[in-house]
């Protein structure tokens, strides 16, 4: 047992804002959020290496403009490297490829390494990097407040078609308020129970029943205390005349400038191209190119 036995919970911090005052930091948070969402969608939708490379280029350019130190950027993908390697091996072993289009480079026992494998691993890696770096860029350059306000403003048009957009944004806001409180509360409960003989260190094995039985005295009071806090917050909101989104005014306003529209347009064009690449034949071309070079 270490001195920081209960401290893992304190590490729950929100966001990782890096104030370098770059043009990306100054960009309209709505645009950044929209760009982030488009990126997730585009990267999930495409399986084209060329398309992913395009998206990746966009993200890397963003990092450069935002002046995020390379170390920060790299640390984002470090945790997944070992498991990417694992995936590569998995791919090589498990999926036999009997495709006319593929070239076998290397064969040992049941392990075969083919072009298709190489491309698959490259694809995975590109997908990961684009997503991780894209969303990290967003959180490095946008404060939590900007994110919540941005979300609310971005969702506002949905309000007009009857979706509870304002309500959802406020819900997210409340959730963000409560996460640090939950961390505090859990730490207190764990310490109090450890003081009364509960042993959170042991029982890590497969004995899940024992583990679950230790969770119950932790989770039940945690949830009940949280509900009690919720009751207080409900009263506080009602005392301050909250009756839903209708007729509310807003302290914070965003003013999109020409640069913001330009940024959005750029992102849309690049990502559209990335998705289109998967539809067209660009992929096959890349594939051929790789095979040729390898030979």
């Amino acid at each position: 047992m270490s001195a920081s036995e209960f401290e893992l919970l304190r590490t729950v911090t929100l966001g990782q804002y890096l104030p370098t005052a770059s043009p990306i930091h100054r960009a309209d948070p709505r645009v950044k959020l929209a760009a982030g969402m488009l990126l997730v969608l585009a990267v999930t939708a495409t399986s084209s290496l060329a398309g992913l490379m395009l998206a990746l280029t966009l993200v890397v350019a963003g990092f450069a403009i935002a002046r995020i130190p390379v170390g920060y950027a790299l640390s984002g993908i470090k945790p997944m490297l070992p498991f990417l390697a694992l995936l590569g091996i998995f791919q090589a072993i498990a999926i036999p490829q009997n495709d006319a289009n593929t070239t076998v480079y290397w064969r040992w026992a049941f392990i075969t390494l083919t072009t298709r494998d190489a491309v698959a691993v490259a694809l995975l890696f590109a997908k990961f990097s684009a997503l991780v770096w894209g969303l990290s860029l967003l959180s490095f350059t946008t404060t939590t407040t900007e994110l919540t306000h941005g979300t609310e403003h971005l969702l506002r048009p949905l309000q007009r078609i009857g979706l509870p957009a304002h309500e959802f944004a406020l819900t997210l806001n409340v959730a963000l308020r409560f996460i640090p409180l939950l961390a505090q509360e859990t730490e207190r409960l764990m310490k109090a129970q450890a003081s009364r003989g509960a042993d959170f260190g042991a029982g890590r094995g497969w004995n899940f029943i024992r583990r679950f039985r230790k969770l119950i005295p932790l989770l039940v009071p945690l949830i009940l205390a949280t509900l009690q806090r919720a009751e207080d917050l409900i009263l506080a909101m009602e005392a301050r005349c909250y009756t839903g989104g209708k007729g509310r005014t807003h302290l914070v306003h965003f003013q999109a400038r020409a640069a913001d529209y330009a940024l959005l347009a750029l992102v849309v064009v690049v990502l559209a191209a990335a998705v289109a690449a998967g539809v067209g034949s660009a992929d096959t071309l890349v594939w051929r190119a790789i095979s040729t070079i390898w030979r």
Binding site: R177, D232, L233, L251
Partner: peptide, 25 residues
Amino acid sequence: FQVPDNQIVATIVEDDVAFGPENLG
């Protein structure tokens, strides 16, 4: 109310102060 943490709605001080007047329109 009694418990300081349980009556703050917003994550930023000025947003919290604005919450009431925003509701009033």
